[in-house]
């Protein structure tokens, strides 16, 4: 049993989400950075779709009531175990004893971290997924005091078996590759020019649904009828604000869809720090 002593800013349970459940307006949900999520399960030799805890800064404080083998992937976090600072490299395996308290403090690199556990967490599977999602599951983030059982408790790993060197590829990102979105061709020349030439960054007002872009494009008057949207799309509002849609985004939207990030770019984009400059490369 895992007990949430303090959930931090926002901590939830996520797997790959509900990709094939879109017909009733279910968001994709699932891990924001699927690559780091999958890495956690790879290291633990779990099934790739095993649920992990997803956290952001500041992270949660967690009490493990039974032995557990865990790993941390994605964002690089400062952690402490039973009140003592612990030098734990990402992607290594930590074996915990009953009543151990793990505190995940601030993040040094990246925005979303994953705590994988050997055998996975036991929670309700709703419409094909354990991912917490507003309007679908009873809670959308873990509250203080929440308890989650986990399945296998006594496995000892040899530390060397699956070690993967920690990398933080988002730190070096200064270009996001994107396809033209369905409404790109409606854009006037000056806006197209700015999209191609200007530098942009994400604001700190991000959640699991969307990441707004700090730098505005010119005001515009494009209107579209409510249309399908997907995580990785960039919408343009009439005020000129660009919004990158993330995994918890709604399935339809009324703003022009100007870009769509190439596969894999979304995993990097969600980890980039607010203010980190990038350009769009249209492919």
């Amino acid at each position: 049993m895992l007990e949430v002593i303090d959930p931090g800013l926002f901590c939830s349970l996520q797997d790959e989400g509900r990709i094939n459940q879109g017909s009733f307006a279910l968001p994709f949900s699932g891990a924001m950075d699927l690559q780091s999520f999958h890495l956690a399960n790879h290291i633990l030799q779990n099934d790739p779709n095993t649920s992990c805890l997803e956290f952001t800064s500041p992270g949660p404080t967690l009490k493990f009531h039974a032995p557990a083998s865990i790993t941390l992937t994605g964002a690089k976090a400062n952690i402490s175990l039973n009140g003592k600072s612990l030098e734990l490299a990402n992607n290594s395996i930590l074996n915990l004893k009953p009543e151990d308290v793990l505190k995940i403090n601030n993040l040094e690199s990246g925005s979303w971290g994953y705590l994988g556990i050997y055998g996975g967490f036991e929670s309700e599977n709703i419409l094909g997924s354990q991912s917490l999602s507003p309007g679908i599951t009873r809670i959308s983030s873990l509250p203080k005091g929440y308890k989650i059982p986990y399945s296998k408790q006594n496995l000892e790993f040899s530390q060397s078996s699956a070690k993967v060197k920690p990398e933080f590829p988002w730190e070096k990102v200064n270009v996001l590759k994107a396809f033209k979105g369905p409404e790109f061709n409606l854009l006037p020349e000056d806006i197209v020019h700015k999209i191609k030439k200007d530098s942009f960054s994400f604001t700190s007002e991000r959640n699991r649904m969307a990441a707004p872009v700090q730098e505005f494009l010119p005001e515009n008057r494009f209107e579209i009828l409510t249309s399908p949207i997907f995580p990785g799309m960039v919408q343009l509002t009439p005020s000129g604000k660009m919004i990158l849609l993330l995994r918890e985004a709604q399935v339809t939207g009324g703003y022009p869809r100007i870009l769509f990030l190439e596969e894999g770019q979304l995993n990097l984009a969600v980890q980039m720090r607010p203010g980190q400059k990038f350009k769009f490369e249209i492919v």
Partner: peptide, 14 residues
């Protein structure tokens, strides 16, 4: 076909 998402005059196929 993992997702077929409709708008008023669009059908998005994933």
């Amino acid at each position: 076909l993992l997702r077929a998402i409709s708008g008023y005059h669009m059908l998005g196929l994933y």
